[in-house]
Design a protein around this nucleic acid. Structure first.
Lengths: 125, 125
DNA sequence: ACTAGTGTATTAGCCTTCTATTACACTATA
DNA sequence: TATAGTGTAATAGAAGGCTAATACACTAGT
């Protein structure tokens, strides 16, 4: 996995796990890989994994069962909240950044449409 | 100015200056505030300002004139490149993040439109 | 020449993040 | 009951970013 060296790795791992849950690669009740395995896979230290997981546990996203593993919460309400929160955060980020660049809301849609067309072209080439 | 504590301050200052140039608060040839003044205004250390500025100088966005000040380059080509680069980077960021969340390109526009509508409502309230 | 305003450089210290290592605690199962 | 698999905790050290303080170098105007 590639990390942005401007943002703490533990923080990027949190966001990655959010993602895995949101796109249902990790379903409610699923067991996560063992911390040592995650550390190998992501080529980071166990402590860094642990830091990310412990925050997710505090947020109620994961549940830790000592000696057995870490599991995605079965509280579905928490997970649907998560999905809404994350998607909206991404939209807000982009909206605010483009607004800072003095792009009007109406124009943002046009910019995005153009950009999507460009990506489609590139994908074909 | 507010900074995101997950991202280096010097880096956020660079982006802020990009912005000021793109929206024409800083025009080609303009003199920037003195480094000590910028440090006061943004409530950071002079060294942090200096780090941001020296990178912008390396990138050809700014020109330093010792004893006189820092100036926006008069090379207009560099500045129009900058604008394209920054806007496209923001779009790419959002596109990739939403793609990671398994939102199809066609749906991104709908999501954005909805979000803009939501912001408009909030603005009125 | 002096002085005020400017950029630049260097040092020391603090904090956070990340790594490496070791140890401990619990669970399941052979 | 031993052992393998799991989470948890604690320490020490390296690296990067930020601050504070001081000093130096150049420019313009008096």
């Amino acid at each position: 996995m590639e990390f942005d060296d401007k943002i703490p790795i533990y923080y990027q791992i949190k966001q990655y796990i959010y993602q895995e849950i949101i796109v249902n690669h990790l379903a409610p009740g699923d067991k996560l890989p063992a911390v040592r395995q995650l550390a190998l896979t992501l080529t980071v230290n166990v402590n860094t994994i642990q830091r990310a997981l412990s925050e997710l546990i505090n947020e109620g996203i994961l549940e830790s069962k000592r000696g057995r593993g870490n599991f995605v919460t079965t509280d579905v309400a928490t997970l649907t909240d998560l999905k809404h929160r994350v998607v909206e955060e991404q939209l807000a980020l982009m909206y605010d950044r483009l607004a800072d660049l003095q792009i009007a809301p109406e124009d943002m849609v046009a910019y995005l449409t153009d950009y999507i067309a460009k990506r489609k072209e590139q994908a074909q080439a």
